[in-house]
Design a protein around this nucleic acid. Structure first.
Lengths: 200, 200
DNA sequence: ATTCGCATGGTACATCTGTATCACGGCATG
DNA sequence: CATGCCGTGATACAGATGTACCATGCGAAT
């Protein structure tokens, strides 16, 4: 049916307008009218395709998560051939770091959502833990096989190391967004840490 | 002069009402009227002591920074006697981590500000880099003396390690606020990492 | 005692925000 | 051809928000 695909296309168009505003001006500037203007549609249409603003916010957040997951999949696919566990870990972590335009946009937009979600405990459980825990378990899995291969010293617990790596890349990303250093410097710090982790 | 100290006291009372709201409901709920109600004063008084809302936000942010600095000073003072560099590093880092009510409050409130400041580049340079860079240079200084004492292996560059530690504790704090783990688990991860850093 | 400045209260005002309502055209189905 | 639903537009509405304005009391200085 034509109408159905139009529907989804419109929703995408509007939701991405929201994400664009959240990235450039913050979520507090993402009013219904601003989103409508950014998407080039009337206010009524935003209401029509998303009954309520909360629905729009949630849908856009889900799309943002999908975009990040897409990016991670691309970076994983571009890893070494065949990729070692360390290749995969490096790919995923450096893909999260705000080094290029896309990752910067995603990181900024996630941060815009972060402050909102912190005060909405029910939405926190639905979205907050999911994505982050997924990353950690992926890292833990790769670290486990790396340890079995001998590439990683057995003194490093996979789960603990995974949690530390995830927190580290998050913190580094924050420092980049905060203007404390640029993406390349953060990437250098990350690879340096990975070198230390996998070396001895 | 009596009026002067009253002035400052009122400003403090109002600014802390703002911080309380930012902590519990987020900055988007911190309207002038909400702050007035929380502080137990009239809307007019909030206007009187802070001409504009931006002024109130900035003043409260400065106070929040001072509160964090106070806490750090207290935790440094409570460190070992005499404190080793590692004692000081542990004190400062675990003091930042949201483990008790105060640190949780500070971390949550800083996060509430974070999203706002990200889209206000001029305010970012004034407040954002200062606090974070201060932490890093403190860490670097302690790491330098630790390396000279032999407590830290010379393979670790102080500046690099300091940046990694700061990012790590920030990321761990985020994970706690996000409900991914509790403060004790984050503290355990941090001390585990410090053990690895200072051991071999 | 009068005047003046400061602290405070009450309230108005313009604007923005989310949402609801009314209206109209087109297209398919009976 | 008639009917009814779907996408779309314009606008209304109630509430919130930042700010401005007017008024009043009160203590101090002249």
């Amino acid at each position: 049916m034509n109408t159905k695909v139009e529907h989804e296309e419109r929703r995408r168009q509007i939701a991405e307008a929201l994400l664009r505003i959240a990235d450039t001006q913050g979520l507090q500037s993402a009013s219904m009218r601003a989103v409508a203007a950014e998407a080039g549609v009337s206010l009524r249409l935003v209401q029509y395709y998303f009954e309520t603003k909360e629905g729009l916010l949630l849908d856009a957040l889900a799309r943002l998560g999908a975009q990040l997951q897409d990016r991670m999949a691309r970076w994983i696919a571009a890893a070494g051939n065949p990729p070692t566990p360390r290749d995969l870990i490096t790919a995923v972590l450096s893909c999260i770091l705000p080094t290029d335009a896309e990752s910067r946009r995603i990181a900024r937009t996630y941060t815009a959502y972060y402050a909102l979600v912190l005060n909405d405990p029910e939405a926190l459980e639905k979205h907050g833990t999911g994505q982050a825990d997924l990353l950690e378990s992926f890292l833990a899995k790769q670290l486990r096989t790396a340890r079995q291969t001998g590439a990683l010293s057995p003194v490093h617990t996979p789960e603990t190391t995974a949690a530390l790596l995830a927190a580290l890349v998050n913190g580094l990303g924050q420092s980049v967004l905060g203007g404390q250093r640029d993406g390349d410097a953060a990437l250098a710090l990350l690879t340096h840490h990975l070198d230390e982790l996998f070396a001895p």
